[in-house]
Amino acid sequence: MRMGILKITFYTALIAGAVTFIYPFLWMILATLKPEPEVASLSLLPSKVTLQSYLEVFRRIPIGRAFFNSLFVSTSVTGSVLVFSSITGYALSRLRFKGRELIFAVILFTMMLPFQITLIPMYVLMVKFGWVNSYQALIVPGMISAFGILVFRQAFRSIPQDLVDSARIDGCSELRIIFQVMWPLSKPTLVTVGIITFMNTWNDVLWPIIVIRKQSMMTMPQAVALFAVGGQADAQMGSILAAATLLAIPVVVAYVFFQRHFIESMATSGLKG
């Protein structure tokens, strides 16, 4: 009997929690389908469904372009991080050379370095390179991540040395060993680093707000944030919420399909960070 009450309490807590997490999103999505005068109302269902708010967003800001920018930037950064971080991780875990420990220490230090300290000089650097308003400014700083290197280093250490040795005897170059021996054996690690990098790049706003001022070059979160704060929405709340919904959709779709990978990857990153 005692157990029963306890279980009911647990379920009640879980359901209350679930409602707290889902309801606001549900309200937001339904609000974007309402005619503008109804948007602020508490009622969940629209009196009539209209896509007007979405049309307004598309009319006012190049959100499609922003989506492409975000996709292009996040994919480039993720690809680059996977390649370069695994190369570095391999060198650190499998090769012996002078200065290896020093480099490892430097990487650990980099991970602990708060970004605030490099923010201003990085902006100056971008200005000096002439990279303001360019993809380079969004991609190059993120091309290798210390986090990725550490995760790959860890993963590669657990792969038997015999495999590496036999590949070497077959005349494989180091790069082939990395991509044809190590990668196939470290798929979960690739997924983890890939998801984390992609998510972090996709969701970052502070850096794009600083280096991108040209509307056609803005990333999606940036474009939506500025649409909400700036005057371009003409204070039409429906279209602000519609822009936010458009920003959420790609990630939510990905999340629904790869939920387990998302959760496990983020958990790993949490523990490593």
């Binding site: 937001m28 706003v205 979160p221 939506v224 919420l241 920003l247 990630v251 939510v252």
Partner: peptide, 18 residues
Amino acid sequence: RAVFFLPVVISGVVVTIL
């Protein structure tokens, strides 16, 4: 678990506007 995790993956911009 999946529901509790949902806001984590969604951009802070969306959450803030909401």
